[in-house]
């Protein structure tokens, strides 16, 4: 069975699910950001796998580049926020940052 049929999508789904799991359960803010990167990569993979062998490989490529760029921006801002959080709370534990609790 060729890898470039359903299995590559399965791989993307698994990556995405792991990203979600990490995002929802890890309390270290840095690892949570890493999980987001995992999800973005899963999206990229889906994009490219779907475009493979069609006339739209360049478009897929270009959009994947966009996604990577946005991921870079997101990581930069996110990590800056982690730093700010650490400065206030002396911790990167996301559960500590609950000042807006109702």
């Amino acid at each position: 069975m060729t890898f470039f049929g359903a299995p590559v999508y399965f791989l993307a789904v698994a990556l995405f699910a792991l990203g979600i799991f990490g995002f929802l359960t890890r309390r270290n803010a840095i690892v949570v950001l890493m999980s987001v990167e995992l999800m973005l990569n899963a999206a990229n993979l889906t994009f490219l796998a779907a475009a493979r062998g069609t006339a739209h490989v360049h478009e897929a490529s270009a959009y994947a580049i966009f996604i990577i760029l946005v991921a870079a921006a997101e990581a930069a801002v996110g990590l800056a926020l982690v730093l700010a959080l650490f400065r206030i709370k002396q911790s990167t534990d996301l559960d500590v940052a609950s000042d807006l609790k109702g």
Binding site: F23, T25, R27, L94, S98, D99, L100, K101, G102
Partner: peptide, 9 residues
């Protein structure tokens, strides 16, 4: 509404 980012997520 416990104010925690991840439980909202």
């Amino acid at each position: 509404a416990d104010g925690k980012l991840q439980s909202y997520s």
